[in-house]
Design a protein around this nucleic acid. Sequence first.
RNA 1: GCCCCUGUGGCGGAAUUGGUAGACGCGACAGACUCAAAAUCUGUUUCUCGCAAGGGAGUGCCUGUUCGAGUCAGGCCAGGGGCACCA
Length: 859
Amino acid sequence: MSRYNAKEVEEKWQSRWDAAGCFSAREDEARENGAREKYYVLEMFPYPSGKIHMGHVRNYTIGDVVARYKRAKGFNVLHPMGWDAFGLPAENAAMERGIHPAEWTYANIATMRAQLKLMGLAIDWDREIATCHPGYYAQQQKLFAAFMKAGIVYRKESSVNWDPVDQTVLANEQVIDGRGWRSNALIERRKLSQWFFRITAFSDALLEGLEGLDRWPEKVRLMQRNWIGRSEGATIRFEIEGREDRLTVFTTRPDTLFGASFCALSPNHPLAAEVAAGDPSAKTFIEECNRLGTSEEAIETAEKKGFDTGLRVRHPFLPDTSLPVYIANFVLMEYGSGAIFGCPAHDQRDLDFARKYALPVVPVVLPADADPENFVVGTEAYTGDGTAFNSGFLDGMGVEAAKRAAIDRLAAAGQGESTIQYRLRDWGISRQRYWGCPIPVIHCPTCGPVPVPEDQLPVVLPDDVTFDAPGNPLARHPSWKQTTCPECGGPAERDTDTMDTFVDSSWYFARFCSPRAEAPMDRKAVDYWLPVDQYIGGVEHAILHLLYARFFTRALAEVGHVGLPEPFAGLFTQGMVCHETYKDPDGKWLFPEEVEKLGDGSARHLETGQPVVLGRSESMSKSKRNVVDPEAIIGTYGADTARWFMLSDSPPERDMEWTDAGVEGAWRFTQRLWRLLTDNLDSLPPKGTAVPGDLGGAALDLRRAVHKTVQAFGDDLEKFRFNRAVARIHEVANTLGGFKPADEAGRAMLRESLELVVRLIGPMMPHLAEEMWQSLGHEGLLANEAWPQVDGALTADEQVTLAVQVNGKKRATVSLPMDAPEDVAQEMALADPAVLRAMDGKAARKVIVVKNRIVNVVV
RNA sequence: GCCCCUGUGGCGGAAUUGGUAGACGCGACAGACUCAAAAUCUGUUUCUCGCAAGGGAGUGCCUGUUCGAGUCAGGCCAGGGGCACCA
């Protein structure tokens, strides 16, 4: 019995693919104007953290199956790889180990590239890019300049999220529960001048664009919808007593205006600042509010607090009524106009506030079955539907009608109009870090911020920087920032901030179309390749990266770099790779290789013999030590086995558990496929032997089974049901294993079957498939073979088994010719002894026959 | 609190979209080969009553629609995820 040597075989085929240039597609004319339809498959590019992990293996295996399958189906496939190479860990390495971020990053890239190559991926390495390479970020700086010119990027003084540990500003999207997404440090508020991308200008477009993304998971679209957070409502401008200016508020409930009992300002509202200027106690109150911070605990425990400014506004519908104006700690400056009107009866926060400050609570929406005389609001606001009452001209209207009527009246009086608000805010991209794309702007004392002219790009990161102190190495570099103003020629300083690394990943998919172009992208190339037909990555990027990339594409379209609004036509979010966790009795995490599993389900420490506490399966992470090194697995079992296991069992969108038993099972199956070939090789007829058309018996059954597998396998791949596709190969292997050819026709059939199976497993286990293909006598690469055609005549069965039910309960099965008439099926069913027994001598009241499926006898 | 998703054997999961529940794999058990082990091969494996032939129950729980429900509807329960002082 010959044993399959994965290591040797895999090396061999990887170098053959390389030599043949199978997957590298240089940027020539032919590549982009071929007769074949294009297909762009892309997996989210990795951050070069050091080594690849199992999550990468899963991600890139899925992508590779798609790439190889589409290639075999005749598509002109683009499947590139690159590195999301800027970011903080490189600077941390510099601080901790005195190694330059560039050196650390490029070393990691080299390691990880070599590891990815071990996987045998059908990747076009000629198009490899790294975002930290000046060839990439120079183009990004051009995009920044173009966006500046188009007004998509702007500078403003703003209160920002300051991460005290990473010493940088974070975008709202990067603050999770009031903590930095990387450092987990409590975020502080600071005032800084920052660069912003005007993503809010695209709010509606980004929202509406989601409708067309029918090959995206509904879950991701929903998350983005919620994140954009569109609310329809009204702007109301209240007259302030004794003043000329007005107080502008936003509300989604203009129908409850008659129930208003106060207005409230955010502590950061300009009017609040004005009040504070003349009132020390207001100032103290505002300071208190700001100290509270935005952490989760702070919000959960914070009481609704307010400060009465003494100002009063006039009610727009009730000339004789005025409302007090408070400064309130629960009003956000960032949303709406930073001011609200409070209707305590129908908003819980307003109610809490009103009870604390003894403000009136007037219900104005009556629930359907409530009595207007007795309806009162106690400690819970009524936020449901109902009919307006206590509301003057709105009385009797439903909520929606009342909203419209209230807005019409406000508009007629010039006191307001209908408004749409978004939760989405502009994207602050300035980061006070070194290892990022320098913002190509020069600050001139006379001309202000001036973009670096294109002929002076790129603004290259200096190499000679120090990491021995916290803060921004660029800012403290002795000479780098000193320059002259491109406009007036006077002395000026460079912007020392770099761009958020999410900018780098917002357009890399476009750069892959023309990775060496002198411009950010070659319009002809992007017009040909974009959109990405299938994007594959983790669901953790459902909001940040995917929303930014969508915004960027629209911005790129606006400045003429691309001609389409959406970058990713299809999105697939794969689940995480999990592993059991282990702790010693002291609660210290243990690595899987430190643990010996015992037969009774318990485990012990391999060295000390101490009992080990088995924890539940969690996503692999260094901190929990439940990681398995892909390189070690590939070294032991080969890439094909690792790939096969990744695709088996768990549906790709779900989390999967990595187990030793599972990999070993995949390994055994790899060997089994190999044996299936080598055990039969000597008896097979030569390549190209035709199978006779008048096949019968077991050989015909085999032919049907195999062709059905070809059909079903292809369907499964199209629908990303890799686990089912794997199961089908197991099934067909079982069938083949049991097939003993009786004659020459049978042997020809066996050859045909083996060849088909080899071609099917090609996308999943490419090395094994090549080796088997070669052993079957083929000279060319399987990678260049077309996908097998399905012969419809061969997938149809002659006989079908129907279930027979009596009163909906299965009692028997009957075998019938395919498409047998219904009365034949009925007759057969009613003649079955088990059916007769179940009918218990009664006559059939009704018989339902579903062709080729089922017979149900009702008695 | 609001929004969304998921509940099927010991485990991962199938189920032609309303038509034979448990494909396939893992694990387990039994057997063959072997001096023995590994590897391999052959069975069995939802639970339950029965020696058997056969029966009964069964897709988180409860109701309903239907000749027929894992699949559809309504109401619960449990787990997971997203957002969260958003006016």
